[in-house]
Amino acid sequence: MFSRFNLKAWLLLLPALSFLIAFTHWPTLKTIWRSFTWAKSDVAPSQFVGVENYQILVDDPIFWKVIENNFWYALGTVPTSIALAIIMALWVNSKIHCTSLLRLAFFTPTILPMITVANIWLFFYSPNIGLFNQLLGLVGIEGPNWLGDPDIALSSLMVMTVWKEAGFFMIFYLAALQTLSPDLFDAAKLEGASTWRIFRKITFPLLMPTTLFVLINAILNAFKLVDHLFILTKGGPNNESNLLLYYIYETAFSFLDSYYAATLTVVMLATLALIALVQIFVLDRRIHYR
């Protein structure tokens, strides 16, 4: 085991490994442990309370609300942004004029930090002075209160997220498209296949590895990316646009309850791990790699 080669390999791995353990695995274990403890304040010694925190969680209506919201948020943003990304990639991959300009245009939302974007969109969405309602006003429609109406606040967040994410995923698809051999398409055209058939039978299957990668990232982002909530809605009105990670933030830093925040974090970690496992083990088998 400790042959010279092995030792060298371990030494080479050591820097990365120690960072990974110190900043990922150790905090994870600590969080899991913390979710089973409680103390009156951060300065008081904590005590083991078993699953009490999890019982509180099951009884917490806001927890169930954010889980529900997160589900709809993922469902609303992931497929849409992937579909848009593919369409945009196919478009900027074709031989039309000004493709680099077009690529840049699609990619711009990705370059901007989420906080900046949210601050701009806050004014887009504003009911009386906002861009959207002014445009709607031109055609005689009284626009809604995008972020203040409980029925559409979450959808408004989704629209912005799709706008922000699609360009990013487009880059992956564009890279993948450019590695595809033109021979396949030439052959298909020679056989007289329609554009849609070429896409369905050749392009899309060959893009599947990229789609899996993008899918995992998109779903993770649906849980991980909540920067815009700080600016746009703060989870309101009445938690209608609250998401799990933002609720964790509120619990830890606004309610100063690190124990319950740890409990929520464990739920989030478990959910994400489960999703990743399903994707890697189930979907992976059905994907064609060259």
Binding site: L122, F123, S126, P127, N128, I129, G130, N145, L147, G148, D149, I231, G236, P237
Partner: peptide, 17 residues
């Protein structure tokens, strides 16, 4: 007053506009 929520962050701009 508009029904529903009125945003804290953009209110000053509403007043100025």
């Amino acid at each position: 007053m508009p029904k529903g929520m009125i945003e804290w962050g953009t209110l000053r701009q509403n007043f100025l506009d």
